[in-house]
Design a binder for these strands. Sequence first.
DNA 1: CCTGGTACCTACTCGCGAGTAAGACTACTG
DNA 2: CAGTAGTCTTACTCGCGAGTAGGTACCAGG
Lengths: 211, 211
Amino acid sequence: MRTEGRAKRLPRAVRERQIMDAAVDVFSRLGFHSASMDEISEVAGISKPMLYAYLGSKEELFATCIRREATRMMEAIATGVEPDQEPDVQLWSGLRAFFGFVGENRASWMVLHRQASNQGGPFAVELMDMRARAVSLVAALLTQSTKAPATKLEAESLAAALVGAGESLADWWLDHPEEPAGVVAARLMNLVWMGFGDLVDGNVWHPPSRR
Amino acid sequence: MRTEGRAKRLPRAVRERQIMDAAVDVFSRLGFHSASMDEISEVAGISKPMLYAYLGSKEELFATCIRREATRMMEAIATGVEPDQEPDVQLWSGLRAFFGFVGENRASWMVLHRQASNQGGPFAVELMDMRARAVSLVAALLTQSTKAPATKLEAESLAAALVGAGESLADWWLDHPEEPAGVVAARLMNLVWMGFGDLVDGNVWHPPSRR
DNA sequence: CCTGGTACCTACTCGCGAGTAAGACTACTG
DNA sequence: CAGTAGTCTTACTCGCGAGTAGGTACCAGG
């Protein structure tokens, strides 16, 4: 039917990539429950039994998607962050990397945040794991900053709040894409580092060296 | 079968309350998709056709739950906040009211935040509406604070970040219930008003008058 | 040409859960 | 007691979607 002819008999590894891409796309648009294996197989340009033969059940497929996208994101952030710097610079580079990733991988972000967060299934584990890594990373950054958070519990709760602020702001950003990533990241940086109290007085935070 | 005998022939208004309570309970535990009308009717101690006769379809029922719980929460916050006060005091009272409500209505909060937020159905409207009200309320508070957020977009994005921080911290709190509401609220207050920069230096925010 | 293996498909089964048909029981009214 | 209005139930239909049975096409190596 297609004039191009259907690409046939591709090796397994290639098909698996195609299927994963299609799955992330569909899951991000419809969510786990509303997405059907039929639609995923259709988007992937493949039949359903192939899907099951290669990636297993629907839950396994979803978990695999989560793991892949979470890994990509954590790597992007780890690459972007600058260790051995002052805490505020570390936080700043981390925020830039995070918003940069979200801006260039909207579907990935939607799967990770909007879809996976509240499905009670076994995949929530993957998601919670990544989130926990992010939180403890921030918490380590906070405790490293000498005095401030006295107890471990306090550092962790503040980190949770900060991560939540980042997630929420990323969601807001999806509805206001006209803003560049750097501006959004800078706003959150000012909020959490300076606080409203300083912002009201006109005191803003800015990076030590403008490149 | 029951020794107590089944409570029979209750008036419609009473049944509707029972059903709503049961629905909030089940939705909060299982989420919209995984919750079945059979289970809701069972928890409510009633048969399924009654459920449909009184509250309509599953989506209508869910939307009604969202609306009821959202209204309860917004009223709790509106009652707790103190207008005509300095911005920081207003924010403080609002945070206290919010965490107080969440602490005493865990199921309500779960339905509102974890379940309703990402279902693409018609009920998302209800939820987004409440969230938008909360965000614009905070945004108004920010713009009212003289200089800080120059543009409307900036105020709104900061408000979104703050609301997200509150939601995330509330979720974290569900997993660490040993902390009292006031402590958690105070932490977020310090984070968003003082900022990490001040907290690192040991500068903390505290309410003007200790009651 | 056969044997085997891998890519790939059409066409099913089957359970679950939303929604309903049809009526039974109770209570109040005249 | 007949009529009727509201409460309440058992016992279905029916579509959707996860997962599968059983095969076909194509390409090795012998």
